[in-house]
Amino acid sequence: MSMDTKPIISVNGLIAKYGEMTILDGITVDILPGEVTVILGGSGCGKTTLLKNILRLHEPFAGSVKFWDKEVLNMEEHEFGEILKKTGMLFQNGALLNSISIYENVSIPLELHTKLPREIIDRIIRVKLHLVNLSEATYKFPSELSGGMKKRAALARAIAMDPQILFCDEPSAGLDPLTSASLDELILDLKKQLNMTIVIVTHELASIHRIADKIIFLDGGKMLFCGTLEAAKKAGIAAIDTFFKVGQF
């Protein structure tokens, strides 16, 4: 990647706290356009917290977050709304709306944010559900789906609007290796064909090898490493080495 590529998101000195407890202690990182960035780290180290703070779902204690070079932390609600329309998020537990069907869950952003006619929206919904391999569950309700199916339905909703930036919190947790691999294919397709910028939290080594352009390793509230996978393996940082060694068999 050439030096003059402007970061699409840049996080600077981000500090996140829950009450008195500091979870993230000064995170500084740039997310480059068209790249797949994987966030790694042990359970409870603050990966979800990082995503939520970047997206203002949880107000950061200090630091700055820029999208397209614009500071978002004190941005007006409606202005930030415009940025959110170009952003999709897959939540760790899916966060589907339980009282409506999968079809309607995916249709919500399309209906509320575009002027597209019904038949076009219908096609978009069908193809998005097809891409996550969930066509059969189109008219089911979230409570009728398995855990992995909920994840995939939530992914379909996250990509409903063809966002420019996609955040995924453990998309493949709870999925079998085949489905997980097909989601990786989809993610690579989105990146290549739509030039989507993707930030993913995942623990799947296989998946990391397939999709990561860059990895970020969090530990103890700090960012231990940021760079390519090869560089991470050569960096000689104990925590990272263990992570990759334990995962191998």
Partner: peptide, 18 residues
Amino acid sequence: QAVIDIFTTIKLPVQVPD
């Protein structure tokens, strides 16, 4: 064309709601 190939709905089977 690549984007069309990903998103085309022409060959998708139609699901009927209950």
